[in-house]
C-alpha cells in the first residue's frame, strides 16, 4: 500500500511539474504548485516525522498564497515571453527528456543513497523540471515557481540524509522568503507601470 502511495506521489510530482512548464495561466500554475507540495510532503515523510514533513506542506502552501495574492492585484498584466521557444510541444518534448534522464540518474542515486526509487526519482525530477522552467522564462513570477520547484526537489533528497530541525526551519524560511521576494518583484514592478 505504502509503495503504491509513493509511486502515486511521484506521478503527482510528474504531472504537476510538467503542468507548471506548460500552463500559461498563473492561477493554474499556483494550483499545480500547491498540489506538487502534497507529493513533496508524502515523499519527505518517508524519512522525516509527519509533523516535520507537514511543515514543508504548510510552508509550500503559504508560499503559493503569498504569490497568489501578489498576482491577484496584478492579474491583468501577464507578459508574454520574449525568449524562444514558446511552443508547448517543444516544452513537452524537453520535459520528456528530463523525465527520461532523471529516471536514469535516479536508478544510480537510489542505490548510492539507499533510497527508494520514487523518492530519488521524484527529487531529481522536480529539480530537473525546475531548472528547465528557469531556462524557459525570465519573468519574476515564473522564475520563483522554477526556483521553488528546484528547492522542493533538493529538499526531498536532503530530507533523506539530514533531519536537523534547524535546517528544516531555515529551508522553510528560505522558501517563504523566496515567495515574498517574488511577490515583491511582481507587485512593485507592476505598481510602477500603472
Amino acid at each position: 500500500m505504502i509503495t503504491i502511495l509513493n509511486w502515486t506521489a511521484l506521478l503527482i510530482a510528474l504531472i504537476t511539474s510538467v503542468g507548471l512548464l506548460l500552463q500559461r495561466d498563473w492561477r493554474v500554475g499556483l494550483g499545480l504548485l500547491a498540489t506538487q507540495y502534497l507529493s513533496i510532503f508524502w515523499l519527505v515523510q518517508i524519512h522525516w516525522p509527519v509533523s516535520m514533513a507537514a511543515g514543508k506542506l504548510v510552508t509550500g502552501w503559504m508560499a503559493c498564497a503569498v504569490l497568489g495574492m501578489a498576482q491577484l492585484s496584478n492579474s491583468n498584466t501577464e507578459e508574454s515571453e520574449a525568449a524562444w521557444p514558446q511552443g508547448r510541444l517543444f516544452r513537452l518534448f524537453t520535459a520528456g527528456i528530463i523525465t527520461a534522464a532523471t529516471f536514469g540518474l535516479s536508478l544510480r542515486a537510489s542505490n548510492w543513497l539507499g533510497l527508494s526509487l520514487p523518492v530519488a526519482w521524484g527529487s531529481l525530477l522536480l529539480a530537473g523540471m525546475g531548472l528547465l522552467h528557469l531556462g524557459f522564462s525570465a519573468q519574476p513570477f515564473r522564475v520563483v515557481l522554477g526556483l521553488l520547484t528546484v528547492l522542493a526537489g533538493f529538499e526531498i533528497l536532503y530530507a533523506a540524509v539530514e533531519s536537523s530541525t534547524l535546517v528544516a526551519a531555515l529551508l522553510s524560511a528560505i522558501n517563504l522568503s523566496l515567495a515574498l521576494a517574488g511577490a515583491y518583484l511582481v507587485t512593485m514592478s507592476k505598481e510602477g507601470q500603472t
Binding site: 521576494a181 515583491y184 518583484l185 512593485m188 514592478s189 505598481e191 510602477g192 507601470q193
Partner: peptide
C-alpha cells in the same frame, strides 16, 4: 532583492 530592485521598473 528589494535592495537591488528599483520599484516601478521591470
Amino acid at each position: 532583492v528589494p535592495l537591488l530592485f528599483t520599484p516601478g521598473k521591470y
